[in-house]
Design a protein around this nucleic acid. Structure first.
Lengths: 245, 245
DNA sequence: GCCGATTTGTCCGTATGTATC
DNA sequence: CGATACATACGGACAAATCGG
């Protein structure tokens, strides 16, 4: 129980902004004011604010203050800067979701697969295909590869539930970093088999490499999304200094 | 000239990682070692490392150290967490690019446009359509709206060059935050007029709202990309604590 | 299992620089 | 110019996680 001090401050400010307690387009109370209110050091207030900047709630400018730039976003959006499982996203958006495993096998990474996924050639991998249904409609086809040596007693049954829950709660694994790429690709035979694409002939494809706390790449997943409901959000900050690095 | 101390440290570590001086999958020297080498405080080393974490070069774990997870990425990729203009991206990837302005007008935000863009209804806006060509091939169709009152003497001629350069260097405006959404949409008549979509009937669409240092939304741009060369990258970190906020 | 050394995470207080008003 | 506000940097202290003996 670290009982971190900046977290409740971050959450308090966040909910004040969401509830309109701080007017949009105007400045929040200064850091000095806030540290008085929350009874903490200036560093701690600044950490809380840094989180709000990252989330796109506020932006800071030296000499002026911290400006509220909050705008409520589309609720149906997929991942935004955080690592979220499909189940977590569904819970957040309040939609009913199920998962169906349509393929499960064991393979080794040949050179082509290794180059595509980032695993070393020869690595033994579980390969699964899963279909995610939102409100009963098949929307996402996942191709996932997991390192076998990270999850010795993994089975097809477990794949039907939340794999992240299994990894984190049962195996005690900690998931840290995920590198993602979004592209758009033509639908292939498999996509048309499992998804109802309507009049789309393309999909939104999110490829992600996930690392555990040992720094080993243990998962590569390619998520092929029905375009109509796909939405990927991000906040970016312009850092003048680091550009010409 | 602030002569920030953490920046050269960040850059030094970054180039060491890129050049393979630190082995991939292994730990970097500890913070205590690095602060001795660079002659700075622990906080300063930690800021440099935080930048590397954000960029997906390393990940940290308490009690272990800082692990190198660098993998060289596809060079042809579009923006990743930073705000980069089209010209800057082209320069980075070493590709020749040009821009053509195909529409320029002045309008006011009607309710529908206001809802879509985030501007207040009635706001006077410049509306431009620009086609970006990479190596001579039209690849991106941009629909941009700029607040008129932020750039009084803006003209169609200026739009052909780098608008960001004009805003930052000539007007002294500072661009801070950009909120982006990636979606996939059907191609419309205009897309087919200006872009050669080949056998694609969809586009990758990046919608972005950009704020200046006063906290005012001054630009809304919808970039419609030819799918074949579109690539959007991001690094995400799983933050256990902030999930249940 | 325990203990101690190492390493990162959090927090505090202070000082100084720099931009804004 | 002075007052205010955020940005950067330093030093110290303790907590929490990891690892080896």
């Amino acid at each position: 129980m670290p009982a971190q001090k900046y977290l409740p401050i971050y959450q308090a400010l966040k909910s004040r902004i969401e509830s309109g307690q701080y007017p949009v387009g105007q400045l929040l109370p200064s850091e000095n004011t806030l540290l008085g209110e929350f009874g903490c050091s200036r560093n701690t207030v600044r950490r809380a604010i840094a989180g709000l900047v990252r989330d796109g709630y506020v932006q800071t400018s030296q000499g002026r203050g911290v400006c509220n730039i909050y705008q409520p976003l589309e609720p149906s959006s997929y991942s935004m800067g955080t690592i979220e499982s499909f189940a977590e996203t569904s819970r957040r958006t309040g939609q009913h979701s199920t998962t169906r495993v349509v393929h499960f096998s064991l393979c080794a990474a040949d050179p082509a697969l290794a180059r595509r996924t980032g695993f070393a050639p020869g690595t033994e991998l579980f390969y699964l295909q899963r279909v995610h249904l939102v409100e009963g409609v098949p929307r996402i086809l996942n191709h996932s590869y997991f390192r076998r040596d990270c999850m010795p007693d993994f089975t097809a049954d477990r794949a039907a539930g939340s794999i992240y829950r299994y990894l984190e709660e049962e195996l005690g694994m900690t998931i840290v970093t995920s590198k993602r790429t979004v592209t758009v690709e033509h639908a292939d035979e498999l996509d048309r088999t499992w998804l109802d694409l309507g009049d789309y002939d393309c999909l939104a494809v999110v490829s992600s490499q996930t690392y555990n706390s040992d720094g080993v790449l243990f998962e590569y997943t390619q998520s092929r999304h029905y375009p109509g409901i796909f939405r990927f959000q991000e906040n970016a900050v312009r850092s003048h200094r680091e550009h010409r690095g």
